[in-house]
Every structure is written in structure tokens, then in C-alpha cells.
Amino acid sequence: MAGPARATRPAKRRLLAAAATVLGTVLLTGCSSETTEQWKRLGLPEAASDRTEAVRSLWIGAWIAALIIGVAVWALILYVVVRYRKRNDEAPKQVRYNLPLEVLYTLAPFAIIGVLFFYTVEHGNQITRMSGTPQHTVNVVGQQWQWTFNYKEQVNGQEGVWETGTLDKPAELWLPVNESVHFDLTSPDVIHSFWVPSFYFKLDVIPGRTNKFEVTPTKTGTFAGKCAELCGLYHSRMIFSVKVVTRAEYDQHLKELADRGQTGAAVGGKDATTIPGHGEQEGGK
């Protein structure tokens, strides 16, 4: 009976291999083109700014380093398991120390940390650099629980226009494509975090402090934005959208804001504890 049983094992293996191949093919072909592209980016969203290449390079490089280290560690584990497996009841030779091994596993982590630190600082400097001569300036006010955007532009003879959102109607941030934008981030109440995933950039919005960054949108379209810091009751509703458009569309939008009377600057201070659009105090009934 052992002979026929052994003979069926190769057939079972071939059947399992064929089934795995078919299943893998079905799963891969079932992915949309967007999902396939995201797999290539290792989960990163669609890129839409000039800072994305530095972040993408650091992200992919970190995964490659982790893969190399993981393979090396597992290879060493498997080598030790096979090479020093128990062969008899004799106790293995006991040693007090192994100097080369101790030097290796002491210095290797420092070398890995040093390389990762170097590239993190190098890419971080690229991501946070500012030109000093941006083409546009936007003051972003993060408040409980929506966003206000102050465009520092001359529109219809007025200095600056603004727009804000509510819980029912999130704010829209309009930006011109391929033109540099300087952002000033302020908050009248608690810490928020300004995040546009497709820009590969996130920065905290801190009361009493103005954080700054600069970015150039490189692709037209509408992109999601959100608060990435737990900031209170309606944190999950503190979302906004970014519309990257042509310069003509951008200028037209600012003119429409001016025509509505939304000129000057809105800082969000006096209503900081009010739920926008609801007229209720936080924690009120």
C-alpha cells in the first residue's frame, strides 16, 4: 500500500502547484490598473507635487533595506537550525564568548541606523526646503472643526480673499498647477495636522506658532486632504479637498470669492469653540 500512496504524492503536488498558479493569475488579473499602480508604489497614493520624489525614494529605499536585512536574518536562522541541529544526546561544546560575532552584532545595527539616518536627513532637507520667492502664499487656519484658507493675493484691488468650510460642506483649497505655493499654518484652538496624501507632505498646525512649508502642485485634479491629528469631537469631519487647476481657473476662483465679499483674512479665532454650521458648543446638548 505504501508504493501507490507514494506514487500519488507527486501528482498531488503538481495539482496544488497548478491550482496556486491559477489562483494567483486570477487575483492579479482581477486588480484594477489603479490598484496595480499603487502596488508598484508600495502603497503610496498618486503623486501630485514636486516633493513626492524625495519621499518616494526614501520609502522605497527603506523597504529595500528592510527586505535585505530580513532575508539575511532568516538565512542566518535557517543556517543555524540546519548546521547545529541535534544529532545525538551529547551536549554541544560550550564557549564563553565569540569575539568576532559579538563585534558583528554590535556594529551592524549601528551601521544600519547610520545609513538610514543619513538618507532620512538628506531627503528631509529636500522635502522641507523653501525657495524664499514663492509665486503664491496661502494662510491655512485649522480650527475645530474645519479649515479656512486665506489667499494672499491682490484681487479686484483688495488685499487677500478667503474661503472656509463647515461640517456639512468641507472647504476647498484651490491651487495653480506648476506654480510654487508657500503655506503658513496657524490654529486658534488646539493642535491640528494639515495633510494632503498626494502631496506626500504633512505638517502640524500648532496654536501660538506659525509652521511653514512650500510645495509646487504638478498635476491637475481634485485631491483629498484631512486633519491627521486627533483634535476633538468632530475630528473625523475635518476634511477638505484640493483642486489643482490652471492659472486662469485659479484667478477666476479668487475673483468669485472677492465678488462674494470674502475679502481680507479670516483667522477663525472668535468662533474657535463653536461647531461650524451647527451653532453648538463642544460637549453641549
Rank of each mutant, 00 (worst) to 15 (best):
A2V: 14
G3D: 12
A7C: 12
R9V: 15
P10D: 07
P10K: 06
R13K: 15
V22W: 07
L27V: 11
G30I: 00
S32R: 06
S32T: 15
E34A: 13
E34F: 02
E34N: 06
T36P: 00
E37F: 01
L42A: 10
G43V: 11
G43I: 11
E46A: 07
A48C: 09
S49G: 12
S49K: 12
D50H: 13
T52G: 09
T52F: 01
E53S: 14
R56S: 10
R56G: 00
A65M: 09
A66V: 04
A66C: 07
L67I: 12
I69C: 05
A72M: 05
W74P: 00
A75N: 04
L76N: 11
L78W: 07
L78R: 11
Y79A: 07
V80C: 06
Y84E: 05
R85A: 10
R87T: 14
A91D: 14
A91E: 15
Y97K: 03
N98F: 09
L99E: 00
P100H: 03
E102A: 04
E102Y: 01
V103F: 10
Y105T: 05
Y105D: 04
T106L: 13
L107Q: 04
P109T: 10
I113F: 12
G114M: 06
V115P: 01
L116S: 12
T120P: 00
E122F: 12
N125D: 12
T128V: 13
M130P: 03
H136F: 15
V138K: 02
T148W: 05
F149P: 03
K152F: 03
E153I: 06
N156D: 15
N156M: 10
G157W: 06
G157I: 06
Q158A: 08
G160E: 10
V161W: 08
E163R: 11
E163Q: 13
T164P: 00
G165Q: 11
W174P: 01
W174C: 03
E179A: 09
L185E: 13
S193V: 05
F194S: 07
W195Y: 07
F201K: 14
D204F: 07
V205A: 13
P207C: 10
N211M: 11
F213A: 13
V215D: 04
T216A: 01
T218E: 03
T218P: 02
T218L: 02
K219N: 05
K219F: 04
T220F: 00
A228V: 00
A228G: 06
A228W: 04
C231D: 15
C231S: 15
L233R: 15
R237K: 15
I239F: 01
F240H: 03
S241G: 04
K243W: 01
V244S: 02
V245L: 05
T246G: 11
E249R: 02
Y250L: 09
Q252I: 01
K255W: 00
K255N: 13
G261Q: 08
T263L: 06
A266S: 10
A266P: 00
V267F: 14
G269H: 12
K270Q: 13
D271F: 10
T273K: 10
I275W: 10
I275E: 10
P276I: 03
E282D: 02
G283I: 04
K285I: 08
